[in-house]
Design a protein around this nucleic acid. Structure first.
Lengths: 206, 206
DNA sequence: CATTGTGAACGGGTTCACAGCA
DNA sequence: TGCTGTGAACCCGTTCACAATG
């Protein structure tokens, strides 16, 4: 029941539970069981019950879980019953794709600013954002109070950009740059690197 | 020393070791230690030694690891001392970004075909590929002997596309679609879902 | 009667600590 | 001396199994 001390790996599963529940809800379902949810996600029912029980008693014996209620609880736990502004750094192809992706705004996130260091891109529009000079990043991010950044810059630029982001008050980074980042312990980082995942997969191929 | 029975989590770290070693090599370094490699990656030295020792004795006591040799060994283990062709399904913004990303061809992968089901896109060019009708996917993928697919289609279409890919002989899928996939046990799947990772991060934010 | 919540048992990945070797 | 390779100890997440309950 402690709101801390919960293993990071458990926290990492909650968004997947939420995603499945939201889809069930869209399909008109009102309740589910740990068994059904687990089947959808390829996770054991016991695992799901154990995970959820760390945060409270959300289910009813014999009945299962009320989907709208559980969604609400998970959104509260994950702190997404509010909108989070995101600073996007890097306006290349990937940055463009992210800026145009409609899936964030449905789910608690909003790209608020786009930065680049390429003078040929600064001032141009990406979606409805004007690309800002990265030289202004520290000031603008701090003044806007933005806490989350997404990074789509080359590996060679990533560490330097991160250092600036930290100075600007960023607390969490989702990096697409193919390089490990060195950051203070209180900054939370996640990586997305398709090449790493492809190389993982090929191990298992004949 | 068994080439099987190795935990998947260990395999998943190898590409990260390889990436760091390749960067060291580009920087002109010829040897390293488990300590130095671990510091770069935020992984303990013991962990790295234990992981590598599962595949052979690659180091020398007192000296550490010869970088070019270790790179070669890891590339062999991960089966990337050859080129893997990839079928990209979905030619939206994200598909475009992936098709234009130069980082794959340096590292053992090549986008070989691009598919979409949107008649306004079929026949157009993405990078130097002509977008093919998804109706021809099964035949073309099978005849080309392609074993890996990347998926950048909407969640609602993902499962159906996967079923077709499996029929076409695909053995591994890297999916950007925000939905869990149900596939035979012998198909290896990895997911990339930035929203899930953002929702993971926000748990830790004030 | 179905299904949750949970203490206990289990399993396996990580760390430790040191022998072994260049 | 410096650093690897590795058995043993440790730790922690998962599964089990069942009491509890609507």
């Amino acid at each position: 029941m402690d709101s801390d001390q919960i293993p990071d790996i458990v926290v990492g599963r909650l968004p997947r539970y939420l995603q499945a529940l939201q889809r069930m809800s869209e399909d008109g379902k009102l309740s589910t069981s740990s068994q059904e949810l687990g089947d959808r996600l390829g996770i054991s029912a016991a695992q799901i019950r154990k995970d959820l029980s760390q945060f409270g008693e959300f289910g009813k014996q014999g009945t299962g879980y009320a989907i709208p209620f559980l969604i609400d609880q998970l959104e509260t736990i994950l702190k997404i019953k509010r909108f989070w502004d995101i600073a996007l750094v890097g306006s290349g192809d990937l940055g463009h794709a992210i800026a145009h992706y409609p899936g964030f705004s449905d789910r608690g996130f909003r790209i608020a600013m786009v930065f680049d260091n390429d003078t040929s891109k600064i001032g141009t529009k990406v979606n409805h954002f004007i690309v800002q000079d990265i030289a202004n990043l520290e000031k603008m991010v701090r003044e806007a109070g933005i806490k989350i950044a997404m990074l789509t810059v080359p590996a060679s630029a990533a560490q330097k950009v991160c250092d600036t982001l930290v100075k600007a008050g960023i607390k969490a980074i989702l990096s697409y740059a193919p390089t490990p980042l060195t950051l203070p312990d209180n900054i939370h980082v996640e990586y997305i690197d398709p090449l790493i995942q492809l190389q993982h997969i090929t191990y298992y191929l004949g």
